[in-house]
Design a protein around this nucleic acid. Structure first.
Lengths: 227, 227
DNA sequence: GGTTGACTGTCATTTTGCAGACATGTTCGT
DNA sequence: ACGAACATGTCTGCAAAATGACAGTCAACC
């Protein structure tokens, strides 16, 4: 495959910013690409974690199941994010599930290759550390939300983050498309489907948002979605 | 100070296992020791994170406050654990509070020194990654507990972990001393003080445990503390 | 050794949001 | 164009636990 195309794999990843072109080439050389469509599972818990993934386009969710079949989503990832990082954190199996939420292009790299590169480049190591730290903060904030906020606050502030991350700014507010199902939002916020529905309709009532299955529109400013 | 004493600083840290003696000397050289007594704060959020800490003896809790003064404890750390790791994860401030729960000996090392050593030793880097991965798993399990378990299950399984980690095995069960206050347990399990009291008394009723302010005794096997 | 402050034990009260049930609406495949 | 599968809207009851209030206990420190 043409080198240019290979390099394209690795564009738009914050984590790799500032790496030397030579390094990037080497990385790209070891990377392969796959197309995954909605509902495909990338890995299960107990699967060997030999691979680290770069999400080029689409959305992936990382979630967990309880014994009695309930679901909670730990993270919703968009373009530019990395997942399956347990591979480079010295763990040989995954402990959660990665599933495609929205058709995705994923770049995969063997953990050994990546670790070799890390040994050669302290700069890469630093970037990885930074990324992990950022991930750690995010999940701590998640805990904080679960403990301090009630159901509807969790839903509202999730919407805030969601619109901020995935939305497009318009003259009169924000637009996100496509949107998630109520059940998906419930799993992300540790609430019940019915509660999500209720809160969403309340917000629509107050004319803060407008939504349907395929889009969500925020009228006006992001900070209406507070508390 | 005598080199032997310096080296003592760094014994019993899983993370440092398998490091070369030379490396250990270098690490020890850059380490200083401090005694901290109960209720002392080691760092606050927004404090610059220039230091990484090794907990030699005692207990430290890492916690967060909400705007309206509520508390939740993210982690309770015992001898052999590391904290303040955000320093090596490329973040320049802390985002939570580290407080001494039980008189502690803490070894402190400047993050720059530590990072220099990491650059020299890929082995150390690997260990650090492993440690971070482990920390990440722990907090993900915490989230899972919060979402899937109810208050009394959280309290019981916290007791399980607590006894396992800090208790001494006896002929007829386990003993932990000193014990935590009900409020501290409440903060760790995201429950109310009164609920902790209730659950504890229930367990005592069923003759599974016996406790007072200063100790907790588990009669028989750990797996009585399940679900 | 008595007073102060922290911790424990136990109520009654109130709230939140989950669960179940079911109707309606939408999408997609054939 | 039809029906199955999936998604949304809405109601009702219920239960877990937080909250608030207060009495009893313990320990430490003048």
């Amino acid at each position: 495959m043409a080198e240019k195309t290979k390099l394209w794999y690795l564009q738009n990843f914050n984590m790799l910013e500032g790496m030397s072109p030579k390094m990037m080439m080497e990385l790209a050389e070891n990377t392969s690409m796959q197309n995954n469509s909605k509902k495909e599972i990338i890995y299960f818990p107990e699967d060997a974690s030999n691979t680290i993934y770069f999400l080029k386009t689409g959305k992936i969710k990382i979630y967990r199941l309880s014994e009695d079949g309930k679901t909670t989503t730990l993270q919703l990832l968009g373009p530019g994010e990395i997942f399956g990082e347990s591979a480079i954190l010295g763990q040989d199996t995954h402990d959660n599930i990665a599933e495609v939420v929205e058709d995705a292009v994923v770049c995969a790299m063997d953990k050994r290759d990546f670790q070799d590169l890390m040994e050669k480049s302290p700069k890469l190591t630093m970037s990885v550390n930074k990324f992990i730290g950022w991930r750690l903060r995010k999940i701590q904030a998640h805990v904080e939300d679960l403990v301090f906020k009630n159901a509807s606050q969790r839903i509202t502030s999730f919407l805030h983050r969601y619109v901020e991350t995935f939305g497009k700014k318009m003259v009169d507010g924000w637009m996100v498309r496509p949107f998630l199902t109520h059940q998906e939002i419930a799993d992300l916020t540790a609430t019940a489907r019915q509660t999500v529905n209720q809160v969403l309709n309340e917000l629509a009532e107050r004319d803060v948002i407008k939504f349907s299955r395929r889009f969500l529109q925020l009228k006006g400013d992001l900070d209406q979605l507070e508390t």
